[in-house]
Design a protein around this nucleic acid. Structure first.
Length: 203
DNA sequence: TTCAGGATGTACT
DNA sequence: GTACATCCTGAAC
């Protein structure tokens, strides 16, 4: 099946964030299976990063998932309106993870478009296509991801990451994939961590 | 195309 | 009470 396993997430968080670009996010919601290619990620590392929810070792009901084992899904509500999806990196007990900031449907785009805009993919305007899933809240809207999936274990059928998907003829990520690096978005409060180049994206 | 402002719930002070 | 790892709308250009 090509599912990413624990070893993938047990590496340095920044390296995992970079390596998730171009890989497949698979979501099974009832009878519908949707597949997206990841196009934008950000790394968060509690030990040195004031932008991380678990900075300074903070343990609360919300941050508890950040301390879970490698590959666990961390989903939280932001601004009272939208959800954000992360995958935990490193060993259990070390709070760090990768935020999925953007992706693009590569299988069953109709199902994603209906969740995102209420219409099939063919009915989208150019503006809607451009803003399909270019943000963490939009990714979750398009894939029906909410807090019911928080703390979901690595490799769950409802939501998992894959290296390749042979049955759909989706090829593995190229290991020479060109990518961009920059500062993270929406963390203006995070002092020196504002400038960490921990955001990665592909075209 | 860019910009300001509002929506909205939860965590934390 | 305040802040928040955001997004949408409508107005101005």
């Amino acid at each position: 099946m090509g599912k990413l396993e624990a070893g993938f997430f047990l590496r340095d968080t920044v390296e995992v964030a970079r390596d998730l670009l171009g890989r497949y996010l698979v979501r099974r919601d009832g009878e519908e299976t949707m597949v997206c290619r990841i196009t934008e990620t950000e790394a968060y590392v509690a030990a040195i990063d004031k932008a991380c929810h678990a900075y300074g070792g903070r343990r609360t009901a919300r941050t508890e998932t950040l301390y879970a084992g490698p590959g666990t899904a961390y989903v939280y509500l932001i601004y009272g309106v939208y959800h954000c999806l992360n995958f935990i990196t490193g060993p259990e007990g070390v709070a760090s993870g990768v935020l999925i900031r953007g992706c693009r449907p590569v299988w069953n785009a109709d199902a994603v478009a209906r969740r995102r805009f209420g219409v099939p993919a063919g009915a989208l305007t150019a503006y809607q296509r451009k803003n399909f899933m270019n943000g963490p809240g939009k990714v979750c809207k398009g894939l029906s991801i909410d807090r019911s999936l928080n703390n979901l274990p690595l490799g769950s059928e409802a939501l998992y990451l894959a290296e390749d998907i042979p049955e759909l003829d989706l090829p593995p990520r190229r290991d020479t994939l060109p990518f961009h690096t920059g500062k993270r978005i929406g963390i203006d409060y995070a002092e020196e961590a504002i400038d960490f180049p921990w955001r990665f994206w592909i075209d």
